[in-house]
C-alpha cells in the first residue's frame, strides 16, 4: 500500500504504551513448582530485574515442561445431540428448575475485567493501512475505555470504547471498529455487552459508523464474509 490516506500519523513508541505496573509476585503466579519459584526468587535477588536473561530462560523451560501436560480438550460439539439420538429424545435439555440456566458458571470465582485488560486486548491490533498498532496510532486510548463489570459471571457487564480515527474522513474507521469488536467478542466471556463508538468530533459520519458498529446482525453477517474476515484476521495478528 503506497498511498496511505494519512501519510504521517503521530506514532507512539511501543515501550511507552500504558501497561500494567509489574508486580514481582505476579512472576510467580503462573507456572512452575515450589522449587522453581524458590529458584526464581534467588535469581531475582542476584539480578533484581524482571528482564533478567537467566530468569527468562528458566521461564521458557518451565513453559516447555508444562506443554507435556496438555489438558484434555473437550469439543463443544460433543455436548450437542447427534441426529441419531433424536429418537430417544435425549438431547441436552434443561430441567424445569430455573436456576439451572446460570448454574454452569456458579463455581467460578469473581474476576472483574479492568480497563488495562481491554486496552491490552485492543491496542495491539494492527491498523489496516499502517504497519503500526491501534495503540501506537492513539486510535485506542486508555481514558476512552469504560468498563462496568463486577466480575460475577452471572451478571451482565458493559464495555464502552471510543476510538479516535487518525483523520476525520477515515473510511477505515468501520473496519477498525469491526476488528476491535471481533477481538473482544472472541476474548471475553459472554456476559459482556460491547459498545464501540467513534469519539465525538473525530469523524465526519460519526452516527453512521456508530450505528453500523453496534448492529449485531450486520456484524454477524460481516463475520460470514470471507474477504472481510480475511482482512480482520490480518489486523488481529501482531504487527510485524
Amino acid at each position: 500500500m503506497s498511498d496511505y490516506l494519512n501519510e504521517n500519523p503521530d506514532v507512539i513508541d511501543v515501550d511507552e504504551l500504558p501497561s500494567r505496573k509489574e508486580d514481582s509476585n505476579e512472576l510467580f503466579e503462573n507456572f512452575g513448582s515450589k522449587e522453581a519459584i524458590e529458584r526464581k526468587k534467588l535469581l531475582l535477588k542476584i539480578d533484581h530485574s524482571p528482564k533478567s536473561q537467566v530468569l527468562h530462560d528458566i521461564e521458557l523451560l518451565d513453559k516447555l515442561l508444562l506443554l507435556n501436560n496438555t489438558p484434555d480438550l473437550i469439543s463443544d460439539t460433543e455436548s450437542l445431540p447427534s441426529e441419531n439420538d433424536s429418537d430417544t429424545n435425549e438431547f441436552q435439555i434443561r430441567g424445569s428448575e430455573d436456576s439451572n440456566i446460570t448454574d454452569e458458571y456458579a463455581d467460578e470465582p469473581a474476576d472483574p475485567v479492568d480497563v488495562q485488560e481491554i486496552y491490552d486486548l485492543t491496542a495491539h491490533i494492527c491498523d489496516p493501512e499502517h504497519p503500526l498498532t491501534l495503540g501506537q496510532l492513539s486510535i485506542v486510548n486508555m481514558p476512552d475505555i469504560e468498563v462496568h463489570d463486577d466480575g460475577n459471571p452471572n451478571h451482565l457487564a458493559q464495555i464502552v470504547i471510543r476510538i479516535t480515527p487518525t483523520i476525520t474522513h477515515c473510511s477505515l474507521a468501520t473496519l477498525i471498529g469491526l476488528g476491535i469488536r471481533v477481538r473482544l467478542e472472541r476474548a471475553l466471556p459472554p456476559r459482556f455487552r460491547i459498545t464501540i463508538l467513534v469519539k465525538k468530533g473525530t469523524h465526519n459520519s460519526e452516527q453512521q459508523v456508530n450505528k453500523q458498529l453496534n448492529d449485531k446482525e450486520r456484524v454477524a453477517a460481516a463475520c460470514e464474509n470471507e474477504q472481510l474476515l480475511g482482512v480482520v484476521s490480518k489486523m488481529l495478528q501482531t504487527c510485524k
Partner: peptide, 13 residues
C-alpha cells in the same frame, strides 16, 4: 414465568 424446557440445538446463535 417458569422454564418448562430448555433445549440446546447448536453452539451458534
Amino acid at each position: 414465568i417458569t422454564l418448562a424446557k430448555g433445549i440446546k440445538l447448536q453452539n451458534d446463535k
